[in-house]
Deep mutational scan, measured.
Amino acid sequence: VTLFVALYDYEARTEDDLSFHKGEKFQILNSSEGDWWEARSLTTGETGYIPSNYAAPV
């Protein structure tokens, strides 16, 4: 399992994006889409796309 942590807060701009807060942890589901990764929040259980430059490996 690849775990990442949010470096900044992010507010979803589309219904496919995932809103999150700094410090929140994610499981990365798909990182082959370039700058946007499909991720599941370990806090909320929700799935959506996150900007890859807002996350770092745990």
Rank of each mutant, 00 (worst) to 15 (best):
V1L: 13
V1P: 12
V1A: 13
T2Y: 12
L3I: 15
L3Q: 07
L3G: 03
F4T: 03
F4R: 03
F4M: 10
F4K: 02
F4D: 00
V5I: 13
V5D: 01
V5L: 07
V5W: 07
V5K: 04
A6L: 03
A6M: 06
A6R: 00
A6K: 00
L7R: 04
L7M: 08
L7Y: 03
L7Q: 05
Y8V: 07
Y8R: 08
Y8W: 11
Y8D: 06
D9E: 06
D9Y: 05
D9I: 03
D9N: 08
D9L: 04
D9T: 07
D9W: 11
Y10N: 02
Y10V: 01
E11F: 10
E11I: 14
E11H: 10
E11T: 13
E11C: 13
A12T: 03
A12I: 02
A12Q: 06
A12V: 02
R13T: 12
R13G: 08
R13L: 11
T14H: 14
T14I: 06
T14D: 11
T14C: 15
E15I: 11
E15Y: 09
E15P: 14
E15K: 13
E15N: 12
D16F: 15
D16Q: 14
D16P: 04
D16R: 15
D16E: 13
D17P: 01
L18N: 01
L18D: 00
L18A: 01
L18M: 14
S19P: 05
S19V: 03
S19N: 06
S19D: 03
F20E: 01
F20Y: 01
F20W: 01
H21E: 09
H21G: 07
H21I: 12
H21S: 13
H21T: 13
H21Y: 12
K22R: 11
K22C: 08
K22F: 05
G23K: 00
G23W: 05
G23Y: 05
G23E: 03
G23I: 02
G23L: 03
G23A: 03
E24V: 04
E24K: 02
E24D: 15
K25W: 14
K25E: 09
K25R: 12
F26V: 02
Q27T: 10
Q27P: 00
Q27E: 14
Q27S: 08
I28P: 02
L29K: 06
L29D: 04
L29S: 05
L29H: 05
L29A: 05
L29I: 12
N30Y: 08
N30M: 08
N30P: 04
N30Q: 09
S31H: 11
S31E: 09
S31R: 14
S31G: 10
S32I: 11
S32H: 11
E33I: 11
E33G: 14
E33T: 12
E33W: 11
G34Y: 09
G34Q: 11
G34W: 09
D35L: 12
D35F: 13
D35S: 10
W36D: 02
W36A: 05
W36I: 07
W37P: 00
W37A: 03
W37C: 03
W37V: 07
W37N: 01
E38S: 09
E38H: 14
E38N: 07
E38M: 15
E38K: 13
E38L: 15
A39L: 02
A39P: 00
A39K: 00
A39D: 00
A39G: 05
A39C: 05
A39Y: 02
R40G: 00
R40M: 12
R40S: 05
R40C: 08
R40N: 03
R40A: 04
S41D: 02
S41A: 07
L42V: 09
L42M: 12
T43C: 13
T43K: 13
T43H: 10
T44S: 10
T44L: 02
T44V: 01
T44G: 02
G45H: 06
G45S: 05
E46T: 08
E46C: 14
E46N: 12
E46L: 15
E46D: 09
T47Y: 09
T47L: 09
T47E: 08
T47F: 08
G48I: 03
G48W: 04
G48Q: 01
G48D: 01
G48S: 01
Y49D: 01
Y49Q: 08
Y49S: 06
Y49L: 14
Y49F: 13
I50F: 04
I50N: 01
I50C: 03
I50G: 01
P51E: 02
P51W: 07
P51C: 10
P51Y: 08
S52T: 07
S52G: 07
S52E: 04
N53T: 11
N53L: 09
N53S: 14
N53G: 14
Y54D: 01
Y54A: 14
A55F: 15
A55S: 06
A56S: 09
A56R: 09
A56E: 10
P57F: 06
P57T: 05
P57C: 06
P57A: 09
V58A: 09
V58T: 08
V58S: 07
V58C: 11
